[in-house]
Amino acid sequence: KVTYHVPNEEFARKLYKKAVDANLNVEIRVENGQFIIHIE
């Protein structure tokens, strides 16, 4: 399980798409202006 803290929405979207394309379980949320992405 990996967690990324991404300040940039564009990068967060790319990361999310890559994980989904790889059939990984992804959860994304915004906290204090940062995008928190959990990948399992």
Rank of each mutant, 00 (worst) to 15 (best):
A22L: 13
E27Y: 09
A19K: 01
Y4A: 08
F35G: 00
R13F: 09
K17W: 09
A19C: 14
K18W: 15
E10F: 04
E40C: 12
N32I: 08
Y4N: 06
A12I: 10
K17T: 04
N23K: 10
E27D: 05
L24D: 01
E40W: 15
Y4E: 05
P7C: 15
R13I: 08
G33H: 03
R29E: 05
K17G: 04
I37Q: 00
V30P: 01
P7D: 15
Y4P: 05
Y16M: 08
F35Y: 10
N8S: 10
Y4W: 10
L24F: 07
L15Y: 03
R29Y: 12
E9I: 12
L15T: 02
N32A: 05
H38Q: 13
E27L: 08
Y16F: 08
G33E: 02
E10G: 04
N8P: 06
F35M: 04
I36M: 04
Q34T: 10
F35D: 00
R29S: 10
V2S: 08
I37H: 00
R13W: 11
V2E: 08
F35L: 08
P7N: 14
T3C: 15
E27I: 10
Q34M: 15
E10N: 03
I36D: 01
I37G: 00
L15S: 02
I36Q: 04
F35T: 02
F35A: 01
T3E: 10
A12C: 15
R29F: 11
H38R: 12
N25S: 12
F11Q: 13
N8Y: 10
N8L: 13
A22P: 01
R13M: 13
R29L: 11
R13L: 12
A12D: 02
Y16S: 03
F35Q: 01
I37A: 01
R13D: 08
I36R: 02
N8F: 14
L15A: 03
L24W: 08
V30G: 02
Y16H: 06
G33K: 02
N25C: 06
G33S: 02
K17L: 09
A12Q: 04
E40S: 14
F11P: 01
I28P: 00
A12V: 08
E40N: 12
E10R: 03
Y16T: 04
R13E: 10
K1L: 09
N32T: 03
I28V: 06
T3M: 07
H5I: 15
